[in-house]
Computed example of a mutant assay.
Amino acid sequence: MSGEDESSGWQLTESDPGVFSQLLKTLEVPLVVDDLYSLDAESLSEFQPLSAFIFLFKWVQSPTSPMAGTFDSDFPGFFAHQVVNNACATLAVMNALGNIPGLPMGSQLSDLISFTTGMDAQTRGMVITSSDWLREAHNILSPPSSVSLDGLELPKTSEDAYHFIVYMPYMGSVYEFDGLKSHPINHGAYIETGEGWIAKARDVIESRIATYPAGALDFSLLALHEDPLPSLTAQLNEAQKANDHAIAEQLMDRLANENAKRERWTFENSLRRHNYVGLIHALVHAMAKAGTLDKTKVDARKVMTERIAKQKEKGGSSIEED
């Protein structure tokens, strides 16, 4: 969950597939993340095998009891509490990765998970968020602001807090991992046939989404799934060896789409890493020399006044993602 205190050193995380996929790459895990706009079977088919759903929602103070399902106080798997602000994206990823049997991972991640074996959720959360290398991996695409507003005595505004949780299968049941809850939440057993755990998770997630007002945009959903590039490349090689040109062409199209997506992620992530303070200073300086700065300031004040008025009409809150 996000918060105003950044003293922990953990920065806000954008709910973006490129950001999460870069984190997974840093952790040396052969998984990627994609946006989901529907939970129907056809939409999910391209992401199989699917390991987990990462759900982002607007956090509000709620009862300690779960909305659905039951707390599993004897959960034998991996579960960590969130003990610092802004870390919930990486905590959600960790709670997912720690419960995928046989998942290949980098030595640092493997050592961290092994080291926390047997710890209670609170201690495990403290150990994870005390890990410098993991915090750096988390922050690499969300660096702290280069401009400090401290000391300007600006009016404080309340900000909506957003929170990441995970839904995934574990030992025959669908579990919800929420780092702000006391224990993992068991949503019951699923049927192995058909869609398996996904059918059960769909019911749970759709029931939760139904609690929001119609048309609300207070949540988003991501799919954590196997990186399709190795499998597609192997299938293409087999199709080419078999001279199956139709299948080969389909596979080449899918590979091209996947590679184009990775190129877009790389470009967008390079923009996230960039410090724009120098560019902004140069633009302001050029506008001042050209004599257009005063008019631009007046226009900007007008636009900001209109935005503030619209915000007040909607309730006066701004939105942050974490």
Rank of each mutant, 00 (worst) to 15 (best):
A201F: 01
S7A: 04
S173L: 00
N139H: 01
T26C: 08
I165H: 12
V32T: 13
R301L: 14
S131Q: 11
G179R: 01
V204K: 02
G172C: 08
A92G: 10
V93G: 04
Y175F: 07
E159W: 14
E4G: 11
R272C: 08
S62I: 09
L134Y: 06
G291K: 03
Q48M: 11
I100N: 06
M126E: 15
G194R: 09
A246H: 11
K181N: 04
L255H: 02
S318Y: 11
Y37P: 00
N186Y: 06
V277G: 02
W10E: 04
R301P: 11
I198C: 01
L50H: 10
K156Q: 12
L279A: 11
P230S: 14
V277A: 04
S15V: 15
L255V: 03
A96Y: 05
V174C: 00
P63I: 05
A68L: 04
A189W: 05
P63R: 10
L91P: 02
D203N: 10
G69H: 03
E258L: 12
A290I: 08
V174E: 01
L293G: 10
S231H: 12
S318V: 10
D160I: 11
G3D: 15
P213W: 00
S107K: 14
Q61M: 11
F177S: 09
E4R: 07
N269I: 04
H274V: 07
L50Y: 12
V60I: 14
L44M: 03
